[in-house]
Amino acid sequence: MSLHLVFNSAGYAACRQRKLSDDPIILLGDGVYCANRLDEDNIHVLEIDARVRGVSLEQCKASTINYDTFVALTALHSPIVSWAE
């Protein structure tokens, strides 16, 4: 199963059209601004990138992850697709 790394909102738009519904997504960089707008399951947010930007994840359905979990997710999935537009 693929893992999608989403680096900004335009990247999310391109990704969501081309992913299987079960594929997990990691939001990182400017991708974290999407965190509170998304209603999908299986979304992870790189916590440090959200905190840097002042993006609150309190109301967010997505799970927050650190780099160790990021690594663990990449070990479980292939291919890993980066989306930045």
């Binding site: 291919p79 697709v81 980066s82």
Partner: peptide, 9 residues
């Protein structure tokens, strides 16, 4: 695919 290459902005 095994790998996907070419993320760009």
């Amino acid at each position: 695919q095994d790998v996907v290459i070419g993320a760009q902005r």
